[in-house]
C-alpha cells in the first residue's frame, strides 16, 4: 500500500507523466462539470421552491455556497501543494499551487459578490463588517498576495517558495472563516451542509445545491488541469518531448 503510494507520488512528480494523464482526464471532467452546472442552474432557477422567508432571492444560494466552499478548498489545496513543493522540491507541485491561485481568487470574488447581492434584499445592506464577510475579504487579499508574489521574483523558484510560505501562513484564515459564525455574533447564517447532520431544508432544495457543489468541484478540476498543463509546456519547453508535442500542431 505504502509502496504503491510512493510510486504514484514519484510519477506525479514527472511533468510528462502528469501532462499525459491529465490530458486523458480533462474531457471527462469537462463533460461532467458542464452537465452538472447546466442541470444544477436550471434546477436552481426554475424548479426549486422559493424560501418562505426570503422568497426567490434565496436562489442565489446555489452559486454562493458552492463558490464559497470551493474558495476555501482551493486555498487549502494551494497551501498543501506549496508545502510539497517546499519540502520535496517537486516542480509539478509548484505549478499546481500557481494554477490554483487565480481560480481561487475568482471563486472568492463570486462568493463575496453574490453574498452582497443576496444581502441587499435580505439584510437591507450590500455589505456589513461581519466576521464571516471580513474573513472572506481577507481570503481574497491573501489570494491577491499569492498571485503578486509569484511574479515578483526573477526566478520562478523563489516566487514559488515565497507564495508557498504566504499560503501556508494564510491557511490559518480557513478555520477562522469556518467557525466565524459560531465564535462571533453575526448576521451570516450557519453552515447549510455539514457532514454529520441532515440539512435543515427539504430535499427539493438541497439536492440541486449538492449538484452545484459537485459541478463546481469538477469545474475547478478541469481548469486546474488546463492551467497546470500550460505551466508544464512553458517551463519544459526546452525538453524534447514538449518540442515534439508542440511542433506536431
Amino acid at each position: 500500500m505504502w509502496k504503491t503510494f510512493v510510486a504514484w507520488f514519484h510519477r506525479m512528480g514527472s511533468p510528462k507523466w502528469f501532462y499525459d494523464i491529465t490530458g486523458r482526464w480533462i474531457p471527462w471532467f469537462a463533460v461532467a462539470s458542464a452537465l452538472l452546472l447546466i442541470a444544477g442552474t436550471v434546477w436552481a432557477l426554475a424548479f426549486a421552491p422559493e424560501d418562505y422567508q426570503q422568497g426567490n432571492s434565496f436562489r442565489i444560494i446555489y452559486i454562493h455556497v458552492p463558490a464559497a466552499i470551493l474558495a476555501q478548498s482551493i486555498f487549502f489545496l494551494m497551501a498543501m501543494a506549496g508545502a510539497v513543493g517546499l519540502i520535496w522540491k517537486m516542480k509539478v507541485a509548484d505549478m499546481v499551487a500557481k494554477s490554483c491561485a487565480p481560480i481561487g481568487a475568482s471563486m472568492t470574488f463570486i462568493a463575496l459578490f453574490t453574498g452582497a447581492v443576496w444581502g441587499k434584499p435580505t439584510w437591507g445592506a450590500w455589505w456589513v463588517w461581519d466576521a464571516r464577510l471580513t474573513a472572506m475579504l481577507i481570503l481574497l487579499f491573501l489570494y491577491f498576495g499569492v498571485i503578486a508574489l509569484q511574479s515578483a521574483f526573477d526566478s520562478k523558484q523563489s516566487g514559488a517558495r515565497a507564495s508557498a510560505i504566504l499560503s501556508l501562513v494564510g491557511v490559518v484564515n480557513i478555520p477562522i472563516i469556518k467557525y466565524s459564525v459560531e465564535w462571533w455574533n453575526t448576521l451570516h447564517q450557519p453552515a447549510t451542509f455539514t457532514l454529520t447532520e441532515k440539512p435543515a431544508m427539504p430535499a427539493e432544495m438541497w439536492v440541486p445545491l449538492l449538484v452545484m457543489v459537485i459541478g463546481f468541484y469538477c469545474f475547478f478540476g478541469t481548469i486546474l488541469m488546463m492551467r497546470t498543463r500550460n505551466e508544464i509546456l512553458e517551463r519544459e519547453k526546452r525538453t524534447h518531448w514538449v518540442q515534439g508535442l508542440l511542433s506536431k500542431k
Binding site: 442552474t41 432557477l45 432571492s57 463570486i110 443576496w118 469545474f219 488546463m226 500550460n230
Partner: peptide, 28 residues
C-alpha cells in the same frame, strides 16, 4: 421577475456566468 427579486438573482447569476467563462477562456 423572481417575485420582485429579479434584479438580485439575475445579477448574481450573470456575473458568476461571466467569471466562469473567463476561467475557461484564459487557459485556452
Amino acid at each position: 421577475n423572481m417575485g420582485g427579486h429579479g434584479l438580485y438573482v439575475w445579477l448574481a447569476y450573470g456575473l458568476s456566468a461571466v467569471l466562469i467563462v473567463i476561467n475557461v477562456v484564459l487557459p485556452v
